[in-house]
C-alpha cells in the first residue's frame, strides 16, 4: 500500500519535473531578450531539478544512492544562481542594458 503510494508520488514528481524542463527550454527559445531568457534558464535549474531529484530519491529509498542524489541536487541548487549571476553580471559589465523599466517609470506594464 505504502509502496504504491510512494511509487505514484515519485512518478508524479518526475513527470512534473520533466514538464518544467520542457517549459524552460521553450521559454529560452520564445522569450524576447537576453535578460528575460535568464528567467527561463532559472526555471529549469531550480524547480525542475528539485522535482526530478526528489522523485528519484523516493524511488531509491534508503540506499546509498539517496545521499548521492541529495548531494548532486544541493550542489546544482547552490551553483545555479552563481552561474546565472556571473553570466548576467558579465553582460551588464559589457554594457548591455536590460530593456527593462524601473518600477516607477511607467504605469502600463508591457515593455516590448
Amino acid at each position: 500500500m505504502i509502496d504504491s503510494v510512494l511509487e505514484i508520488v515519485s512518478w508524479v514528481l518526475m513527470a512534473t519535473g520533466g514538464a518544467f524542463v520542457l517549459i524552460g527550454g521553450i521559454g529560452a527559445l520564445r522569450l524576447p531578450e537576453f535578460y528575460t531568457r535568464l528567467h527561463a534558464a532559472s526555471l529549469t535549474e531550480t524547480m525542475a531539478t528539485i522535482l526530478i531529484f526528489s522523485g528519484m530519491m523516493l524511488q531509491a529509498g534508503l540506499t546509498l544512492a539517496t545521499p548521492k542524489l541529495a548531494a548532486i541536487m544541493v550542489f546544482l541548487l547552490l551553483t545555479g544562481p552563481v552561474a546565472s549571476y556571473a553570466v548576467a553580471n558579465a553582460a551588464l559589465q559589457s554594457g548591455m542594458r536590460p530593456g527593462a523599466r524601473g518600477l516607477e517609470e511607467n504605469d502600463e506594464g508591457d515593455a516590448r
Partner: peptide
C-alpha cells in the same frame, strides 16, 4: 535568483 522570475544581476 533561485526563485524564478527574479534574477540578481
Amino acid at each position: 535568483t533561485l526563485s524564478p522570475g527574479t534574477v540578481t544581476i
